[in-house]
Design a protein around this nucleic acid. Structure first.
Lengths: 244, 244
DNA sequence: CGTTCGATTGAGCTTTCTCAAGCACAGTGG
DNA sequence: CCACTGTGCTTGAGAAAGCTCAATCGAACG
């Protein structure tokens, strides 16, 4: 149907360098980069955030569109009594603030040193018009996010704590794989246990215990508090789907 | 930013009749209807499904794009051991199968008598090209669904059973409101208790018990097994946000 | 070397699940 | 017209997964 890789009739090389950004999806980046992202970067304002700093809060007027160029952010929603659900993590290459609402639906906070490139929302519409492939690309990004959101609904609605953490690790590994092409088997955890818990619908204590189980099952090794090595990807895959 | 209501320079009347379809979002429908949906309907193939019939299964090749014209469907994913998560219900006006994957990521099953209008996926790309506003519109639809999916993640990850059911009823009421303009206070439950449970990440027993609690709290009345009357919308809103 | 903060571990508790029985209502056949 | 039956819903009792609260650990930092 809507082909994500077609733009101005030319196909890109699969090994397109992607202008040095570590991207979620190479095909997506390639198009964005060629048709608009480079311009976006050139015209956009660069900004930095330190760990723990907030980019915007839920309810803030959404005045700018951001793209992450370095670091990681968490997106979250709070219930009135303080319960928190992290709806996603944003990595280099991801876009923030491209919703249709005038207000941000979530808060965004830096997990480490974050570098962003931003653009006034008011000019983003015109920008998209000038780069027609962007429109399709935005749709592709939204569709991908939607598909990820649906998977997360399955995780939150129906998986056990062990399955949730296993699924999460596989998500992170897939990401690490996509960045460094070769089949990596270890990856960073830039987020705290509490963040993982708030992403997986658990408590930090349960995350800790279940991480211990995965370790005891010889599926992962804790290289450091914030670095995991996968020992048995297939096994972890089985656990993630409830077959472990 | 991307204005959902602009197309070919002309603004639509807010009370545009929407060609008789009961739509999720009037603005969305208006544009779709004018720029493409009427054509979609004229060129598309009409089909019907009886209650319990499956439109497609997870993993089936996605050969057609559908729009619901009557009735309700459920979308769901299964885990290998049979656990089920319903990721959404589709009502008249909604689109199915407009993903980027070649295979359906979810299964779709009719909850009642369903009427659909469909289009070969292969021709949908061209169709979108001929109706440029469609592209933006598709993006808007995806963005809306994404926002709904995020809310559902909060529900599944952090809300209690009581809060989940209250939130669900408010979702359905909002929908009923949007269709019949006037502030309705009752709505149908075309889905079984098990379906509600699989949507809310609970069991049918818990749904039943919690429904009893909402009744005892005088927040709702069960007019019939499949019809609810809201007695205290504000109260239900408080419960849904954990303030009850 | 002490302090701090996040992570881990433990014990008891709560919510929700599981399994099982009973109920209500619609459809069927006598 | 009424018993029969099937299906989905409700209710109950016990079990379990995960939560809460509290104590301990351990690495990072002054």
């Amino acid at each position: 149907m809507l082909s994500p890789a077609r733009h101005n009739g030319a196909e890109l090389h699969a090994d397109h360098p992607c202008a040095g950004c570590a991207v979620r999806d190479r095909a997506v980046c390639a198009v964005l980069d060629c048709d608009g992202l480079a311009t976006f970067r050139r015209l956009g304002r660069t900004s930095k955030l330190g760990q723990g700093q907030t980019l915007f809060h839920e309810g803030d007027p959404a005045t700018r569109v951001f793209t992450v160029t370095r670091g990681t952010l968490k997106l979250y929603t709070l219930l009135p009594d303080g319960r928190r659900q992290i709806t996603g993590f944003m990595f280099p290459g991801d876009f923030l603030g491209i919703s249709l609402d005038e207000e941000h639906a979530v808060s965004a906070e830096a997990l480490d040193e974050v570098q962003l490139c931003s653009f006034p929302r008011s000019r983003f519409g015109a920008f998209v018009e000038e780069h027609p492939a962007m429109e399709r690309q935005l749709y592709c990004l939204a569709a991908n996010e939607l598909s990820a959101a649906r998977q997360q609904m399955v995780l939150l609605g129906r998986k056990t704590a062990l399955e949730r953490l296993a699924s999460f690790f596989l998500q992170l590994l897939d990401r690490a794989d996509r960045i460094s092409e070769g089949g990596t088997s270890s990856f960073d955890l830039p987020m705290s246990r509490t963040d993982i818990a708030d992403y997986l619908g658990l408590t930090k204590e349960t995350v800790s215990r279940v991480l211990g189980q995965l370790r005891d099952l010889r599926l992962v090794r804790l290289i450091a508090r914030d670095r995991i090595k996968l020992l048995d990807r297939a096994g972890l895959g089985l656990v993630a789907e409830g077959l472990g």
